[in-house]
Design a protein around this nucleic acid. Structure first.
Lengths: 112, 112
DNA sequence: GCTCTTCAGTTCTTATTTGGAACTTATGGC
DNA sequence: GCCATAAGTTCCAAATAAGAACTGAAGAGC
């Protein structure tokens, strides 16, 4: 079964996962909440390949979670900003952050 | 970059994702919160392959999010139950559920 | 005893997705 | 003319997942 097949699952958690339940997608959203909006920012911040970022941004725009808009006409340059639907995803990321802070402390250099 | 490389990222969201930022892992956790605990239950409930479930359960046990314990000695049978660390992941799933309920309504048969 | 069923996996081969790096296109600056 | 920047796309190799069949231990029914 493919993960996109979850999009009409009875469970709202599964439907949500079919759309954003992927590390890179969630990292892109995190970046948006941190104020980033441009392609190359996402690439360097997440460490994902350009290919992946390109694909995930397309999905997010299609799902109306991000909006792609031109901030420059010549040369053509775009930025991605959270829609209201996207903004409302904040509680999920906050829950991830809090859980990570509590249960996954950063390992120190001495422990590596 | 591989996703497991996120485990010592400065960002708690990224660290959390390196552990559970994968659809099947999150679906397994959802099932645990719904009261499921056995291998075949996870397989049929999530629709993932047995291979995947096997792999993800191993990770979750290793991360101390689930505990594997025998509920029968002869024949050997196991169940997987949430640890306290796992229990505390609930807010994230609740956020996913609420967002999905609000923004991703189930499509009806007539629309397919 | 023999066959069927359940559970908790493992193994196998094939298909899909990712990773990594280079290339493209449009423009601006020096 | 040459280099840089932004936002992608293209290519091939490597890693991961899909799907189905197989294993092993035991119990239930006949």
């Amino acid at each position: 079964m493919k993960w996109t097949d979850l999009d009409d699952n009875w469970c709202p958690v599964a439907r949500t996962l079919s759309l954003v339940g992927d590390r890179w997608t969630l990292l892109i959203l995190r970046d948006c909440f941190l104020g980033m909006s441009r392609f190359d920012q996402f690439v360097s911040s997440t460490g994902a390949t350009r290919h992946l970022i390109s694909d995930r941004l397309k999905r997010l725009v299609e799902a109306d979670i991000l909006e792609k808009r031109a901030y420059s006409e010549r040369p053509k340059r775009f930025e991605y900003v959270l829609t209201e639907k996207g903004q409302e995803f904040a509680p999920a990321l906050i829950a991830f952050r809090d859980w990570g802070k509590k249960h996954l402390p950063v390992r120190r250099a001495t422990q590596r």
